[in-house]
């Protein structure tokens, strides 16, 4: 009895255990890694990425995929910079940036609904489109002239905790709450779990998809603001690449690629594993190219293990019957 409980706990929190294991390994290998400062640094560095990944997780739970995240973040980052240049107050520019995110996300959702094609294909197209928009807006330039007020979003801190980390925690709690406690959240799982069943049960599937993409877009907006204010520069090149890292983190953390299952904590742990791995390998002085190889192997191993676990579960169930 006790043993099966332990097993269930291990299975449910496998990725957290792997994260702890990784941290232990790096802590032993590198004194620099185990400093409190470095720990906070990992969190701060990854705050924007975790927020964007939570957005991608929302879309994946609803049964979709978004490949346009990185380019959308480019558009948002550049837009916010241009708005502030044009004299727009910081809070207004930030809010408008988040709004632009919602519009770009909503456009993806609307296209998937109207054209009745999978969002992966839609965002493959809008990814290119957003890239164009981003470069048209930026004129292929980088913008550095941010006010201190804006920079304080990414670089400020309350005590030992940086502002990006605080924002990240707030976003995580809010989205968790939406997913588990609101009707909208339940409908996201329903649509991702089985869109046809949901439709026949009276769920307005199109509306839910649109809202999910819009909400995720807001998160991409927040992520873009943190990223540009932390780095002190905005250009069209800031975002691209995030989309694949985010999907990787989601899958690693256990968000279902086919939809209907996943939690905010899954997305977070996936991001943290990637973050700790990158930071830890730097700390022990591994060269960049070897880092890629190790990352790839670890990905394969952890996802493979997870899949294997599920197969065993399936086999056991079949035996019982």
């Amino acid at each position: 009895m006790e043993k099966s409980k332990v097993n269930a706990f291990v299975r449910k929190n496998m990725m957290w255990l792997i994260l702890i294991l990784l941290m232990l390994v790096f802590a032993i290998l590198s004194p620099n890694f185990r400093s409190f400062k470095n720990m906070m640094n990992i969190l701060t560095q990854n705050a924007y990425f975790i927020i964007a990944t939570i957005g991608v997780a929302l879309i994946m739970i609803s049964g979709g995929t978004d490949l346009s995240v990185g380019q959308a973040m480019g558009v948002i980052g550049v837009s916010v910079a241009l708005l502030m240049r044009g004299g727009c107050p910081v809070p207004v520019a930030v809010l408008l940036g988040i709004l632009i995110g919602a519009v770009l996300g909503g456009f993806n959702g609307a296209c998937a609904n109207v054209l009745k094609i999978h969002s992966m294909i839609v965002t493959l197209a809008t990814m290119t489109m957003y890239k164009g928009i981003s470069y048209i807006l930026s004129g292929s330039q980088s913008y550095y002239d941010f006010s201190d007020k804006y920079l304080s979003i990414g670089q400020g801190a309350v005590g030992p905790v940086s502002v990006p980390v605080i924002i990240m925690i707030v976003v995580g709690i809010v989205i968790s709450f939406i997913l588990s406690k609101t009707v909208f959240g339940r409908f996201i799982y329903a649509v991702g779990g089985n869109a046809e069943t949901a439709r026949l049960a009276g769920v307005n599937v199109h509306k839910i998809k649109l809202m999910t993409f819009g909400l995720a877009g807001c998160l991409f907006g927040v992520a873009a603001v943190i990223l540009t204010s932390r780095g002190g520069s905005a250009s069209s090149a800031i975002g691209p690449g995030v989309e694949f890292d985010a999907i990787t983190a989601c899958v690693l953390g256990g968000v279902s690629f086919i939809g209907g299952a996943g939690r905010v904590s899954d997305a977070v742990v996936g991001c943290l594993i990637l973050g700790v791995l990158t930071n830890g390998m730097q700390m022990i002085g591994m060269d960049v190219n070897s880092q890629y190889v190790v990352k790839g192997i670890l990905l394969l191993a952890s996802i493979g293990y997870d899949t294997y676990q599920r197969q065993v579960k399936v086999r056991m169930k079949a035996d019982k019957k």
């Binding site: 329903a190 779990g193 089985n194 046809e196 026949l200």
Partner: peptide
């Protein structure tokens, strides 16, 4: 299986989908 149930959700979750707005 394809149109009636959410197979990967619990019994109570499935039933709640019929009228989740009243269960708030």
């Amino acid at each position: 299986k394809m149109q009636g149930c959410f197979l990967n959700q619990s019994i109570s979750w499935n039933i709640s989908m019929g009228n989740i707005r009243s269960m708030t």
